[in-house]
Design a protein around this nucleic acid. Sequence first.
RNA 1: UACCGGAUGGUGUAAUUGGCAGCACAGCAGGUUUUGGUCCUGCUAGUCGGGGUUCAAGUCCCUGUCCGGUAGCCA
Length: 553
Amino acid sequence: MSDADAPKDFIRQIVADDLEGGRHQRIITRFPPEPNGFLHVGHAKAICLNFGIAAETGGQCHLRFDDTNPVKEEEEYARAIEEDVRWLGFDWGEHLYHASDYFDTLYAWAEHLVENGNAYVDEQSPDLIREQRGSLTEAGQESPHRDRPTAESLDLFRRMKAGEFADGAMVLRARIDMASPNLNLRDPVIYRILHQAHPRTGDRWCIYPMYDFAHGQSDAIECITHSLCTLEFENHRPLYDWLVEHLPVPARPRQIEFSRLNLSFTVTSKRKLLRLVEQGLVDGWSDPRLPTLSGMRRRGYPPEAIRDFCHKVGVTKYEGVTEVALLEATVRDTLNPVTPRRLAVLRPLKLVITNYPEGHSETVEAPNHPGDAEMGTRQIAFGREVYIEASDFMQDPPKKYFRLAPGAEVRLRYAYNVTCDEVVRDTAGEVIELRCSYDPESKGGGGRKVKGIIHWVSAAAAVDAEVRLYDHLFNRPDPEQGGDYLDHLNPDSLEIVQAKVEASLADEDPLQRFQFERSGYFRRDPQQPERLVYNRVVALRDGWAKIQAKAKT
RNA sequence: UACCGGAUGGUGUAAUUGGCAGCACAGCAGGUUUUGGUCCUGCUAGUCGGGGUUCAAGUCCCUGUCCGGUAGCCA
């Protein structure tokens, strides 16, 4: 239910015009995945478009599995797809369908085509048929069987269905125009023989309709008003329309194409994702680095952020590449106002407060959200020994480094100011401990104002946690360019660190997301609930990193 | 080189259908701030080229250029 005055994309404009002009009283769309892989962010765009239009216009959107090729499809994928669509926030109600639900009708319509001289059986080899199709610049040649008697084609087609012939022995072809400049119209194959059990229809069929002979008809059967698909089907529209015109269908759906979503630093192609999964380069389809819906779910992306992102990306026919930064910004914008804050040290460095009474401890109060007092406060344990972020100390700090350095003073957020008196190193010269003195008067914000404020956890009270830091899966924005995309995998896309976190975190709802202050948004990994493992959903914007990067150049 | 489609700042998009080229992300500068976060302010930057119609063109006409898709018994 978006604002009626908001600018509409070209598809919503068409839909609005059709409603206004009385062409349709009620809009029916559909999301038609093939159950041969997992859904990714590109599908999210299609889902948001189809379900979104239905919701905005008070219509309905069907979930329909395009399951016409049993060689490639699996029930497992279908279940995953249903889960993903639901998680994204959409509901198809009772409108769950399968192209395979229509196999009987489709078959009858194929016979209808034969009977009207609009289809024929061709027993030429696939190679020969391909040769005769011609080329992009040359017309095709007609099959010698093109003008065979209707009765003969009908007989052959029925025997195909009866299982008398082997796979590939013959096909049913629509009889259209071998000279058409659109190759899809050069007598396309519409039924092929596949002696393969189907996940839903079992062994009932050994012939299966091709996409072109199933999709538009399924749309028509379901009285889909607007059949929205991606640009690669543009050349199929004339065939889509031809079939709808030559068949006794109950409705005339209109196909409209839009450009698919491309994202920088990743790939959105089922085939390419499948390769990553099959070669074990990632942890399955739900690896948090993947742009799959299951991956983004595991990583902790809120579904509303993905919906918002799809909205921001818009709908056009221009094939561009959206910067992944937009997705990340959207996730931050979604999370920032509602996510409680906690302290967590990703790469711990021990800091000992030498003038803090031995054996003593206390608590400090911290707001759960500095911008939202209603989220309340909590008490955090503080003591003589704390951990701070290793990157919050530098022996020889550059200009404008506000954090700890020998002799420097910083505030331990929500606690005290400390000054670094001494740096302890191991035999290898690595900094292993900082010895500092604190200002007892500075608790909670008293004392000197300092530029540097760093986070910390009590060494005595903190608990250990594994934290997984994710970076882009590929190290270039256009991994598909320049050879094999697998050559551009980012070796640092996953970094695992042993962190120290506020003790209370262990008792929180495992699905709750937190902002670890100054670091990013995190949530526990739902795939290993028995351990304390956090996934970084997205990092905070890092102004210091930018200053450093600039200093380098 | 056939047919189809596309082209607005770095990126994604908008422009009441012929009337001041706007928004968001990114970038830059500054302000606020117990997160180098958030928030706020400002700035940088665009109609693919050439003609034409018009008082007025991103939008209409002509022409050119560049980019994408299509030759599965995949979807």
